[in-house]
């Protein structure tokens, strides 16, 4: 009897222990850090806010504690490397990287590999000549958008608009005169958006003609406003028919400038030109609703933030990148998922 009892006790113990072990497959706590290229970037901020939100969400869902911390590089690669140095000694479970300088991924990769800390890249894709060593050889994953897709969609939106209403060609000469508001000169996104918005529109059968020089306004609303204010004065009353803006803030700057001339006010009877932005920030949506901007392309910051956190957790637990998710790899030669853009031409 005594033997049976002790056997039972042992069996019970064993059972609870294995159960506990199974539970322990998830650690109590995950330490995830993120290196951010620039805190005060509008779209980047949306992703940051989303990452915070989704880190809390997944912590609750999985019943673990997730310590999530972000660091600002203030658009300075040197500062990002300094932060990375600190991280290599603190040994977090995972690092999410938003490069301050796309050509410099190798430095960080070397540091984190030496310290045996897994990592992923998002938003800013390591430059082409570093693709092999930074993305392929390390087996890491890149979570991004397709830089040209935003531009493509801007062009498609314009083609659709023209098909529906040829009246956007104000002087009816069959050629749309446009102005380009560009973000930064050497920025991949800015270059792709400036190029493909026009190329795609032309591919879709439109005739376009640029007015003046490309206006480089550093993503900034006030700069775009001042630039359009002057360019419109030189080419008044509908000599400009379309304004492409690399982001919504510059598009809003264009609206503010045109309001000054009584255009795009949204008031009954006031004339307007086509203004297409990117980002779908709230103020742009409001502007589309009230007749200022015409359309925008949404870069889904929330979806990007969610993917970053979900995949980082997989990485920290040593699982496959896409384990338990619905993402699919692109056909890039490295692990990569791309969060799609969406067109917004109407706001309720």
């Amino acid at each position: 009897m005594k033997k049976i009892l002790s056997l039972l006790t042992v069996l019970c113990l064993l059972f609870t222990m294995t159960a506990a072990l199974a539970e322990n497959a998830l650690p109590e706590e995950l330490d995830i850090r993120a290196l951010i290229w620039k805190f005060d970037d509008t779209y980047g901020s949306t992703v940051r806010v989303a990452m915070d939100k989704w880190a809390k969400y997944y912590a609750e869902e999985m019943g673990i504690k997730i310590n999530f911390q972000m660091y600002d590089a203030a658009d300075d690669m040197a500062k990002q490397i300094e932060t990375a140095t600190i991280l290599t000694s603190e040994k977090p479970d995972f690092v999410i990287i938003n490069l301050a300088e796309v050509t410099n991924g190798q430095v960080l990769v070397d540091m984190f590999q030496a310290a045996d800390i897994p990592f992923l890249f998002y938003n800013k894709q390591p430059s082409e000549d570093t693709t092999k060593s930074v993305l392929e050889d390390t087996g890491t994953i890149f979570i991004g958008t397709l830089a040209r897709q935003a531009g493509d969609m801007q062009g498609e939106i314009l083609a659709d608009l023209y098909a529906k209403n040829p009246g956007i060609d104000l002087n009816g000469d069959g050629v749309l005169s446009y102005v380009m508001l560009m973000g930064e000169p050497q920025n991949d996104e800015a270059i792709a958006r400036s190029r493909y918005s026009v190329e795609t529109a032309i591919e879709q059968g439109l005739k376009l003609e640029q007015v003046g020089e490309t206006l480089v306004c550093n993503w900034d609303q006030a700069q775009a406003q001042d630039a359009i204010n002057a360019v419109w004065a030189a080419n008044p009353d509908g000599a400009i028919e379309v304004i492409f803006a690399n982001n919504d803030m510059m598009g809003l700057g264009a609206v503010a400038a045109l309001n000054n001339y009584g255009w795009n006010t949204g008031k009954e009877g006031d004339p307007s030109v086509v203004i297409i932005g990117v980002d779908a920030v709230d103020s742009a949506l409001e502007s589309i609703k009230t007749g200022g901007m015409t359309a925008t392309v949404q870069q889904d910051g929330d979806a990007m933030g969610k993917a970053n956190v979900r995949i980082a957790i997989n990485g920290a637990l040593g699982r496959e990148w896409l384990d338990g998710t619905e993402y699919t790899y692109t056909d890039d030669p490295f692990h990569c998922i791309r969060i799609p853009y969406a067109k917004i031409t109407e706001v309720q």
């Binding site: 005060d40 509008t42 809003l252 709230d282």
Partner: peptide, 22 residues
């Protein structure tokens, strides 16, 4: 001032860090 402004703009109840408009 820059830091304080960023904190201010990011404490929007909508949970975004977008420009204040309208």
């Amino acid at each position: 001032a820059f830091g304080a402004n960023c904190l201010f703009i990011e404490s929007q109840p909508s949970g975004t860090a977008q420009a204040l408009s309208t």
